[in-house]
Structures are given as structure tokens and as C-alpha cells.
Simulated scan of single mutants.
Amino acid sequence: MPVNVFFAAGPEHWPDYRIPLQNALAATGVDAVLADRAEDPAAVDYIVYSPGGIIADFTPFTRCKAVLNLWAGVEKIVGNATLTQPLCRMVDPAMTESMVEWVVGHALRHHLGMDRDIRSPAPHWDQISPPIARERPVAMLGMGALGQACAQALAALNFPVTGWSRTAKEVPGIPCLHGEAGLEAVLRQAQIVVTLLPRTAETENLLDARRLGWLPRGAFIINPGRGPLIDDDALLAALDAGQIAHATLDVFRVEPLPPDHSFWAHSGVTVTPHVAASTKPVTAAGVVAENIRRAEAGEPLLYLVDRARGY
């Protein structure tokens, strides 16, 4: 009997995912029926989901064995009281590659002082030589799959990278600290800070006025993680005071970023429209299909969300 897979990530994504999901499921050998509607919710075996999709109440899906999220973040679903099924987040290898490229690109941009030449409105000949990479310490806040990949890519360019996470981590080639004392130690020596933490109650406003004050004067902030990781007002004050030289932000508390937000007009802020990394249908479909294969074979699910931690 085939398993029923309900694509509930929204009609706008269905054309991009239909064929990749069908191909990926066929490649695993799973006998599956894929549909973008559920005539009988009680007959659905798996739900492919994304925030803003077409399900808010998971109660009718009594046979569902897992909800498979297409995005890395699960903060918009993890607190849903009707969601009693196992929830898996997305770890897409192509999305990881995109994030590495974006983070490395902006880290090098700030390290080399490229804005000084690109944005100059008039002829100039300021022969300012930047330090070499091994003289520019980087703090990677968040050592999950994305943080580890970005940390290792920067380390391969000779940046001295130190990782930080809320709990202890061991990552080959990257020294890692954790806890409040570890956060202070990491920030006090970092000239570039990259934030790739999930949004939880513990990480909201992680970079507040006090912690921004721990950084060496003139540090750079790069945030492709979650908007609420940084206190907006504290960041603007730190930029105005020269404590932070520049902030490149890809994520925000409200998206799209409202036209009247101070970030748009501030010379010390670069806004990018949440483009650092997105799920790629072909590779993401492979992850979804593999999890369905695992569940049908009685094997552990990949990237299972810990509800207590929120990720």
C-alpha cells in the first residue's frame, strides 16, 4: 500500500517541488503518492510543510508519522499545540553551500575594506592596507550545520575562528566555547561576528548593548541567522558611537523590512533581503525523501527537532 505524502508548503511552492519530490521518492524505492491537497487528512502519512503553508491545525492528521519542514528554522511551528507528530527541520546541502558563500563573501568584504573603494563618490587614493586574515579574529555564534560549515570555510582562509553555542560542541579544527562566560571570551577578541543561531527565548536579543560593548571597537557584525538575535536599538546606538563599524544584515524582526526602518538610511548598515541561503528544491527533496524512507524502514529520522530546545 503506498504512503500518502501531503505537500502543505503552499501552492506557490508546489510547481517547484512536485517533480523533484516525485523523482526523489522514486529513487529511494518508497511507493508513495504525492499530492498538494488532502481530501482525507486521516489518510495522510507524511506532511511536507513550510511556515505560511496551508496547515495551522495538525489535529485531523491522526495517521501522520512526521512533519517535514522545508526551511531550516522551525520557530513558527515548534510551539503549535496541535502539532504532536515528530517534526524535522531542513538541513539542505545546497543551502549550506549558499550560506557559506554569502558569509565568506561579506566577511572578506569587511576584512578587505572593499566598501571604502566601491562606495567612494569622488576620486581618492587612500592606500590603506588591511591586515591579513590570520590577524582578524572571527566569532561564529551558532555551531549547528550552517555555523560549522561557515566557520571551517573561514578557517581555511586563515581567519582565526572561534565558535560559540549555548551547549558544548566539538568541531574539528575550530575551538568552541559555550555558556555566558564563553560568549564574553569569544566576543572580547572578535573583529568580525557572524550570527547563525536559531531563534529561541534564550537567543532573542543575544547581542544587546552590554554584549556589543564587549567587542573591540570597530568590529563588524554579519547576521544571516535570525533578526531577533540582535537588539535593533542597541545596534544602532553602537553604530552611532563607533563601537560597531558596520553591520550587514540579511534577516529582520519584520520582513520585508519596513520602508521607514532606520536600517535603510544608516550608512553603517547593509541590508540584504533574506537571500543568504534558501532551500533548493532538488536537494531538499532528497532530504525529505530520505526521511520518509527512514521512517518506513523503522530507522531514526534525520534532523529531528528537540521541542524543549526549540530547534
Rank of each mutant, 00 (worst) to 15 (best):
1 M>F: 06
1 M>N: 11
2 P>Q: 00
4 N>S: 10
5 V>A: 05
7 F>K: 11
8 A>F: 07
10 G>Q: 02
10 G>Y: 06
14 W>I: 01
18 R>C: 11
20 P>A: 03
21 L>R: 06
23 N>K: 08
25 L>A: 04
26 A>R: 13
30 V>T: 01
32 A>T: 01
34 L>A: 07
39 E>C: 04
40 D>L: 10
42 A>Q: 11
43 A>V: 01
45 D>H: 11
48 V>T: 08
49 Y>A: 12
50 S>W: 12
53 G>S: 08
53 G>C: 02
53 G>Q: 01
54 I>Y: 05
61 F>L: 04
62 T>Q: 10
65 K>A: 14
68 L>K: 03
70 L>H: 06
70 L>K: 04
76 K>G: 02
76 K>H: 10
77 I>A: 12
80 N>V: 00
82 T>S: 15
83 L>K: 02
86 P>N: 07
86 P>M: 03
87 L>N: 04
91 V>Y: 01
91 V>A: 00
91 V>Q: 05
93 P>I: 08
96 T>D: 00
100 V>N: 11
100 V>F: 13
103 V>T: 07
104 V>W: 09
104 V>E: 08
106 H>E: 05
108 L>F: 03
112 L>E: 04
115 D>W: 09
125 W>A: 15
128 I>N: 09
130 P>M: 03
131 P>W: 00
134 R>G: 00
137 P>W: 04
142 G>P: 06
144 G>A: 00
144 G>C: 06
145 A>T: 10
146 L>Q: 04
149 A>F: 02
150 C>P: 07
151 A>W: 04
152 Q>W: 03
153 A>E: 06
159 F>S: 07
166 R>N: 02
167 T>G: 10
168 A>W: 03
169 K>L: 01
171 V>W: 02
171 V>G: 06
172 P>K: 14
179 G>I: 01
182 G>S: 09
188 R>H: 05
190 A>V: 01
193 V>W: 09
198 P>F: 12
200 T>V: 05
200 T>W: 08
201 A>V: 02
203 T>A: 05
204 E>K: 12
205 N>R: 14
205 N>Y: 13
205 N>P: 13
210 R>Q: 13
210 R>T: 12
213 G>Q: 13
213 G>D: 04
214 W>Q: 09
215 L>R: 08
215 L>K: 14
216 P>T: 05
218 G>N: 12
219 A>Q: 08
220 F>W: 12
222 I>C: 11
223 N>Y: 14
226 R>V: 01
226 R>D: 01
231 D>E: 13
232 D>S: 15
234 A>V: 00
234 A>S: 02
236 L>P: 09
237 A>K: 14
239 L>D: 01
240 D>Q: 12
245 A>T: 10
245 A>N: 08
246 H>Q: 12
246 H>V: 05
246 H>G: 09
246 H>F: 11
250 D>H: 13
250 D>T: 13
251 V>K: 13
253 R>D: 10
254 V>I: 15
255 E>Q: 14
256 P>K: 10
257 L>P: 14
258 P>M: 15
259 P>M: 15
260 D>G: 09
262 S>F: 07
264 W>M: 14
270 T>W: 06
270 T>E: 02
275 V>A: 11
279 T>K: 05
284 A>G: 15
285 A>C: 09
289 A>I: 01
290 E>K: 14
291 N>E: 07
292 I>Y: 07
292 I>A: 09
297 A>C: 03
297 A>V: 02
297 A>E: 12
301 L>M: 11
304 L>E: 03
305 V>L: 15
310 G>P: 06
311 Y>G: 13
311 Y>R: 12
